[in-house]
Design a protein around this nucleic acid. Structure first.
Length: 261
DNA sequence: ATGGCCAATTTTATTGGA
């Protein structure tokens, strides 16, 4: 079995005790982290390596940052979107692990519909869609991370309040549909159609306690990976307790020949 | 219950997050 998780950790240094506890309990083979907020030289690799994980990192000071932790061999590492030389945001990290092309993303937030950052977000999604052309939908591909888009109304705690707002606007949803349309399955939705299934809850206003959340972190799987999926769930426990991230991990397991791992 | 913003930097305010 192969376990893969995605988790917006909201500062890997602030969350290190929770992260190491969680790795010890879950023992995932592949973990895609977002918002590490840490330059590569300051990444806390040693305590993670002590647990058997190698750390692939692409970080910067204060903002953004992605990383892949894995206890398997990794190769063909990519850190940029093609045709994007002027972009200094650390938002993408791709690697081939156990024969799976794993692409970890932290999509721009967009701040407010109509803002400059919103335009940047939509442009970033267009570039991501172009980048997918370099891969084969019939292969083993997983695109996961914080997409900063709630795909449908059932992914939002109050769809009417959020209608047309950031994370929910139709152009954002269309951009995400274009990504999925490359040949992905939204893995959590493929197994769990119910309402109230969220991955992010605002720190403010007791949002988690009240069930005021949104589903903006996703694992998109190509058909061959979807067919191998044995389970996929939101680890809501990681939103509880002392100093949580405002996101919970999404964890998927796949049938996997032990010899291949 | 699972809680009442948080993290980083530019630090005693400001910015960004979502």
């Amino acid at each position: 079995m192969l376990t893969l998780a995605t988790w917006n950790i909201n500062s890997v240094r602030m969350r290190l005790p929770r992260l190491t506890d969680w790795l010890n309990r879950r023992k995932p083979a592949i973990v895609c982290l977002q918002e590490t907020k840490t330059p590569d030289g300051d990444f806390p690799a040693a305590p993670l390596e002590a647990l058997g994980y190698r750390c692939l990192v692409h970080g910067q000071k204060a903002y953004n940052g992605v990383a892949i932790l894995t206890n398997l061999e990794a190769g063909d590492i990519v850190r940029t979107l093609p045709g994007d030389p002027g972009d200094t945001d650390c938002r993408l990290l791709g690697a081939t692990i156990a024969g799976v092309r794993v692409i970890n993303i932290y999509a721009p937030n967009g701040q407010a519909v109509g803002s400059e950052k919103y335009a940047y977000k939509l442009g970033w999604y267009r570039r991501l869609r172009v980048a997918l052309e370099g891969h084969d939908p019939e292969g083993a591909v997983v695109l996961c991370g914080d997409f900063n888009v709630a795909p449908e109304d059932r992914d939002v705690w109050d769809p009417e309040q959020w209608r047309g707002q950031i994370l929910c606007s139709e152009p954002e949803r269309e951009a995400l549909r274009a990504i999925v349309g490359w040949g992905f399955v939204d893995l959590l939705r493929s197994r769990h159609p119910e309402d109230g299934l969220y991955t992010w809850w605002d720190y403010r206003g007791g949002a988690f306690h009240r069930g005021w959340g949104m589903r903006i972190d996703h694992i998109l799987a190509s058909a061959s990976m979807e067919s191998r999926c044995q389970s996929v769930e939101v680890d809501r426990d990681e939103r509880k307790g002392e100093k949580p991230s405002d996101h919970a991990p999404v964890v998927a397991t796949f049938a996997w020949p032990e010899t291949a791992v």
